[in-house]
Simulated scan of single mutants.
Amino acid sequence: MSVTSPRKSARERLLAAADELFYAEGVHTVGIDRVIEHAGVAKASLYSCFGNKDGLVRAYLQGRHDQRRKRILGRIEQHDDPRDRLLAVFDSLADSVAKPEFRGCAFYNASAESEPDSAAAEESAASRAWTRSLLTDLARDAGAPDPAGLAAQLVLLYDGAMVGARQDRDPSTGRTARAVAAVLLTAALQDQPRSAVRP
């Protein structure tokens, strides 16, 4: 069903247009007039549904987060083994960055364009907090003695893989990140004291 399908409500059409345009071109590059035109709705619909452009950006990012959360949890639920469940987060990442339409992380892109107190920054922070919490819980379930510490490493790896895949246009980056995550997890489970590790 297209963005302008009459079967969609004005809100759905605006969100579909925003999702397509904001992700491809940026939340500040794309003005509301372009979103309205692409959605095929009256300007008043945007204000009645979202209040203003910030409200539309917030809803766009919330939608992106919901999609991402469902995608990641869907991969996790395919596994029973705690180690595989943690690595499934990186399987989901590998799927995402390998898609031809991948343009980087919607949250990184939007927050980089925005002020620190903007809707984009707030939604990006919320999404990152969810990712960090998820990885901490999965690391704990896998038996890591310092689940928060391992999660911090994995978040950095996740971030780097997203940026690297976008910058290098390399769809294999996600698989590489998964391999590194497996090494980090194995090392964490061995629980070697830092003093025992030689440079």
Rank of each mutant, 00 (worst) to 15 (best):
A110Q: 02
L87R: 03
R103H: 15
A152D: 10
R85T: 13
R132A: 04
D84K: 11
S133L: 12
A112Y: 06
Y108D: 10
P116D: 09
V155I: 11
A125W: 01
A88S: 13
R103K: 11
L154P: 03
S92C: 13
A129K: 14
C105P: 01
L93M: 05
L135R: 02
T136A: 08
R83C: 12
D91R: 08
S114F: 04
W130V: 09
D141A: 14
L134H: 00
A139G: 10
F102M: 12
L138F: 02
R140I: 01
L157H: 02
A110V: 01
A126W: 02
R132L: 09
S118E: 07
P100T: 05
D117Q: 14
A148C: 12
P145S: 14
S114R: 04
A98N: 10
V155D: 07
D137N: 06
L150S: 05
L156I: 06
Y108T: 14
R85S: 06
R85W: 09
V155A: 01
D84H: 11
D117Y: 06
V89S: 05
E113I: 03
R85P: 06
A126K: 00
A125E: 09
S96R: 12
A151P: 03
L156G: 15
E101I: 03
V97P: 01
D84C: 09
P116K: 13
L156P: 11
D91W: 11
Y108G: 11
E101A: 15
F107T: 09
L87Q: 08
A112V: 11
A88N: 10
D137P: 00
L154C: 06
A151F: 01
D91L: 14
A152Q: 02
L156T: 15
